[in-house]
Amino acid sequence: MRFFLLFAVCALSWATSLVAQAGTSPIILDVARFRNLNKVEKGAEVEIYVTISTQALTYRQRAPRAFQSAATVTLEVLKADGKPAYREVVILKPPVLTDTSIVIKNPQSFLKRILLPDGKYTVRGTVRDQYRSSNGETTVEKPLLLETPTTTFLSDIVLLARPAVRSGGTDNFARSGYRLTRAPGNVYSRGAENIFFYTELHDAPAGQPVRIHYHLTTPDGSAADADAILTPESGRPTSVVGQLPLGPLPDGPFTLFVEVYGGPGNKKLLAGHRVIGDRSAVDYAPAGAAVPR
Rank of each mutant, 00 (worst) to 15 (best):
Y178E: 03
L180F: 08
T217C: 02
G191N: 11
I229T: 15
V241W: 10
A206W: 11
L244R: 07
I229M: 05
S176A: 13
I195Q: 04
R182M: 10
T181E: 15
G242M: 09
R162L: 12
L256Y: 13
V187M: 13
T218S: 12
L201M: 01
T199I: 05
P264F: 10
P163F: 04
N172A: 15
H213L: 00
Y261T: 06
I229V: 14
N172D: 13
S234G: 00
G221K: 01
T255D: 06
R211K: 15
L230P: 01
G185P: 07
V158N: 00
G252E: 10
S176E: 15
R175D: 08
F196M: 05
P250E: 14
V187T: 09
Y214H: 12
F257H: 14
G177H: 09
G168I: 06
I195C: 07
R166H: 08
P264G: 07
R182F: 13
L180S: 01
G247F: 04
S222E: 14
L249T: 02
G242D: 11
R182Q: 11
G247I: 00
V258H: 01
P219H: 07
V210C: 03
A204Q: 07
H215Y: 15
A164E: 04
I195S: 07
I195K: 02
A161G: 15
L159H: 06
G207K: 12
S167F: 03
P264W: 12
G221H: 09
R166K: 14
A224M: 08
F197W: 11
V158S: 01
E193N: 14
E233M: 05
